[in-house]
């Protein structure tokens, strides 16, 4: 049911996109106005979300660590998994962002039939990590590769990336490795939510919707490159027009382009309101980005109110005469 709901939502979006693609009068809306709106919503919404997160206080040090804490001099500290320096935190965050360190530690729990009845067993589970790694890296490379439509002249680095991506030179136009990887990886990520009962139980429409969106974007892109081709030069004129704020709408681009760009725009606009914000959120995870110096340094609660104190010196100043009369010893005469 939850799957069906997301699936029908994406189908509806594809239908809207197809309508926009085949009605020439709507091309200006679908090719220029909606992408601009989506981009503004993406960047604006992203900043809004991150600022909102940034305003919430983090009163305690709550780093999660998987290595030896700094201790006595002859005990070797794990400087990356349990960092006490800013550099260590940077390395740990880089491992997290680039290679999904935490996910690598993913385990699975299952009941096995042992000799004396069922036994609880734990094992390492790397498939999710591998699938995620392929998915995210392919997505990143695909986005960077798309800069060839938004930059003129095209920098060498982007051309090099593209030729590496198409290094197998299979078919014409050459197949991109990342196109294959992202389709395989996203199919895996989708099947995992359907097949594994526990994961299926906790999956929500908001989990399936982005999967279907990204799947449809990848498929429309593949269809556009290999099957329902578009006029690439006209496409680039449109995109450069967008980037120079002098929008032009060349004729005869081909409908597949408008379907693709509408799906991408929808994803961009949806991005800040969704779980996809983990892109910004990962940098703000307090269990990962804090130096593990819980007891080395005194940490003061950021919202502690100003406490009015009355020190003994002030007390003595106030009551010195009375204390002397009563014969109580004073520190200062």
């Amino acid at each position: 049911m939850k799957v069906l709901f997301s699936f029908l939502a994406v189908i509806l979006i594809i239908l809207v996109a197809t309508m926009g693609a085949f009605i020439t009068n709507l091309h200006y809306v679908f090719g220029i106005i909606i992408p601009y709106l989506a981009f503004a919503m993406f960047v604006g919404g992203f900043i809004y979300r991150v600022v909102k997160w940034g305003r919430s206080p983090v009163p305690f040090r709550i780093p999660t660590t998987i290595g030896q804490q700094k201790s006595l001099p002859w005990i070797k500290q794990n400087k990356i998994e349990n960092p006490t320096s800013a550099f260590g935190v940077v390395v740990r965050m880089a491992m997290e962002v680039l290679f999904f360190r935490s996910l690598f530690r993913n385990t699975k729990t299952e009941l096995r039939e042992g000799q004396n009845g069922p036994e609880l067993a734990y094992g390492s589970a790397k498939w999710l990590w591998l699938g995620s790694l392929f998915f995210h890296w392919s997505f990143l490379i695909i986005i960077v590769r798309h800069l060839r439509f938004f930059l003129e002249p095209i920098p060498f680095a982007i051309q090099a990336l593209e030729s590496i991506d198409g290094i197998l030179q299979i078919g014409l136009p050459a197949i991109y490795l990342t196109d294959v990887f992202i389709l395989v990886a996203i199919t895996y990520l989708f099947l995992r939510r359907i097949v594994v009962p526990q994961v299926r139980y906790i999956s929500l429409p908001a989990d399936f919707f982005p999967l279907f969106m990204i799947m449809s974007i990848a498929i429309s892109g593949v269809l556009m490159r290999y099957f329902y081709k578009v006029d690439l030069v006209a496409v680039k004129q449109l995109t450069i027009g967008l980037a120079t704020f002098q929008p032009v709408l060349p004729t005869g681009i081909g409908p597949m382009f408008f379907i693709h760009i509408f799906l991408v725009s929808t994803l961009f606009a949806y991005f800040p309101t969704s779980k996809l914000m983990h892109m910004g959120g990962i940098f703000m995870s307090p269990t990962r980005n804090m130096i593990s110096n819980n007891r080395m340094v005194r940490h003061i609660n950021p919202w502690n109110p100003e406490v009015k104190v009355h020190t003994y010196e002030q007390y003595e100043d106030e009551f010195r005469d009375k204390m002397k009369k009563a014969g109580i010893p004073v520190e200062k005469e």
Binding site: I47, V50, L151, A234, T244
Partner: peptide
Amino acid sequence: SLIIFAALFTIPFFYNMGKVNAG
């Protein structure tokens, strides 16, 4: 970090600034 984020995503606007769209 947010400034870096915005800068990364607006690279095309700055890169193509003042250029003529001549295909």
